[in-house]
C-alpha cells in the first residue's frame, strides 16, 4: 500500500503476521499456574541463603566479605573443659546471626567464602513480607531453611578430583610418587591440567 520495497508479493507480510498468531494459538501455552502448581526451578536455583548453625565458628568472614554489610553476627566465648587437657579450651558460641534480605543482593559471596559450609543456597523463594523491616531474618529462621537445601550435585566425572581425594591419593602413594592428577584419574581425558597447582 504505502511502501513497495523488495518484499515480494504485496500483502505477504500481512499473511505472515496472521500465520504467526494462528500457529501460536495451536501450541501449548507457556503459562505456569504458580500458586496452584509449584514451579519447576532449575538446579542450583538461588532463592535464599540458609544457615547451618552447628557449622558456624563465628569466623566473621561472611560478614566482612558481604558487599552490603547485611549480615549481623554476635557471639560470646565459652570455656570447655576437656578431660585430660592441660587447661580449658575456649569456644565461640553464636548468639545472633541475622541476614537483612532487604539489603542482600544475592551475590552469594558469603556462601562462597564460608570455610565450614555453614551457609547454603536454597531454592526457597516464598518469603515475601508486607513490611520491609520484616525481611531481617534471625538464625532460627535461616536454620529452618536448611530443610529446603537440595543435596549437592554429583561430582563431574570429567572434572578435576576434589582436594580431599587428591591429597589422600598422594599420601597413599608415598613421597616422590606421581602427582595427584595422574593417580586420581587413570583414564585421563585431558592431559594433566595445571599440575603445579595440585602439588
Amino acid at each position: 500500500m504505502t511502501d513497495d520495497g523488495e518484499r515480494g508479493l504485496p500483502g505477504k507480510g500481512l499473511i505472515n503476521g496472521l500465520a504467526v498468531t494462528l500457529r501460536t494459538m495451536t501450541r501449548k501455552t507457556t503459562t505456569q499456574q504458580y500458586p496452584d502448581v509449584e514451579p519447576e526451578l532449575p538446579p542450583r536455583s538461588r532463592g535464599v541463603i540458609a544457615l547451618l548453625e552447628e557449622n558456624c565458628t563465628v569466623c566473621m568472614l561472611c560478614a566482612r566479605e558481604c558487599p552490603d554489610w547485611c549480615i549481623y553476627i554476635d557471639s560470646h566465648k565459652e570455656e570447655v573443659v576437656v578431660p585430660g587437657a592441660a587447661r580449658a579450651r575456649q569456644r565461640n558460641v553464636l548468639d545472633r546471626f541475622d541476614i537483612d534480605y532487604a539489603l542482600c543482593m544475592y551475590c552469594g559471596i558469603c556462601v562462597e567464602v564460608c570455610p565450614f559450609d555453614a551457609l547454603h543456597w536454597t531454592p526457597e523463594f516464598e518469603y515475601a513480607e508486607t513490611d520491609v523491616l520484616s525481611l531481617l531474618h534471625d538464625k532460627d529462621r535461616l536454620g529452618e531453611w536448611m530443610r529446603t537445601v537440595p543435596p549437592p550435585p554429583a561430582h563431574d566425572v570429567l572434572g578435576e578430583p576434589s582436594k580431599e581425594e587428591a591429597t589422600a591419593a598422594r599420601k597413599a602413594a608415598g613421597p616422590g610418587a606421581a602427582t595427584a592428577a595422574k593417580t586420581a584419574r587413570p583414564a585421563a581425558v585431558r592431559r594433566e591440567p595445571r599440575q603445579e597447582s595440585d602439588k
Binding site: L22, T24, T29, T30, Q33
Partner: peptide, 13 residues
C-alpha cells in the same frame, strides 16, 4: 481466550 492463546498465555482461569 483467543487473544491469550495467540500470545502463548491461557487467559482468565
Amino acid at each position: 481466550k483467543v487473544m491469550a492463546h495467540m500470545q502463548g498465555r491461557v487467559g482468565p482461569m
